[in-house]
Amino acid sequence: MGMSPQARLLRVLRDRGAQSKAELGDLVELSRSRVVAELDRMIELGLVEEAGLAESRGGRRPAVVRVASAVRFAGVNIGATSVDVAATDGELEVLEHVAEELDVREGPQRVLDRVVELVGKLRDQGHLPRLNGLGIGLPGPVSFRDGVPYAPPIMPGWDQYPVRDTLMRELGCPVLVDNDVNVMALGEKQAGVARNSDDLLFVKIGTGVGCGILVHGEVYRGANGSAGDIGHIQVDEDGPACGCGNLGCLEAFFSGAALARSAEAVARTGESPFLGMRLAERGTLAATDVADALAAGDPVALRLVREGGRHLGLVLAGLVSFFNPSLIVIGGGVAGIGHVLLAEIRSAVYRRSLPLATNNLPLVMSELGEDAGVIGAARMISDLVYAEPTR
Rank of each mutant, 00 (worst) to 15 (best):
F274T: 10
F274Y: 14
L275V: 11
L275F: 10
G276K: 09
G276F: 01
M277I: 07
M277P: 00
R278Q: 14
L279E: 08
L279Y: 09
A280E: 13
A280Q: 13
E281F: 10
E281C: 06
E281K: 14
E281G: 08
G283L: 10
T284E: 14
T284H: 14
T284A: 14
A286Y: 07
A286R: 13
A286F: 05
A286K: 12
A287H: 04
A287E: 06
A287G: 10
T288Q: 12
D289N: 10
V290K: 00
A291W: 00
A293K: 06
A293W: 00
A293V: 07
L294I: 12
L294D: 08
A295L: 14
A296W: 07
A296C: 11
G297R: 09
G297E: 11
G297A: 12
D298K: 12
P299T: 12
V300P: 01
L302D: 10
L302Y: 02
L302G: 09
R303E: 15
R303H: 14
V305E: 06
V305Y: 00
V305S: 07
R306C: 06
R306K: 14
R306E: 15
G308C: 12
G309Y: 03
G309C: 09
H311N: 15
L314Q: 04
L314K: 02
V315S: 06
V315K: 01
L316V: 12
L316N: 11
A317I: 01
G318T: 09
G318Y: 09
G318Q: 12
L319Y: 02
V320C: 05
S321I: 04
S321V: 04
S321Q: 10
F323G: 01
F323N: 00
F323H: 06
N324E: 12
P325E: 08
P325D: 08
S326F: 02
S326T: 15
I328C: 00
V329R: 03
V329Y: 02
I330N: 01
G331S: 06
G332Q: 02
G332K: 05
G332R: 02
G332Y: 00
G333L: 07
G333Y: 01
G333V: 04
G333H: 01
V334E: 04
V334N: 07
A335F: 00
A335G: 06
G336E: 13
I337C: 10
I337W: 01
G338L: 11
H339G: 08
H339Q: 15
V340Q: 09
V340G: 03
V340I: 11
A343L: 06
I345D: 00
I345Q: 00
S347K: 15
A348R: 08
A348V: 09
A348F: 11
A348D: 08
V349F: 05
R352I: 01
S353R: 09
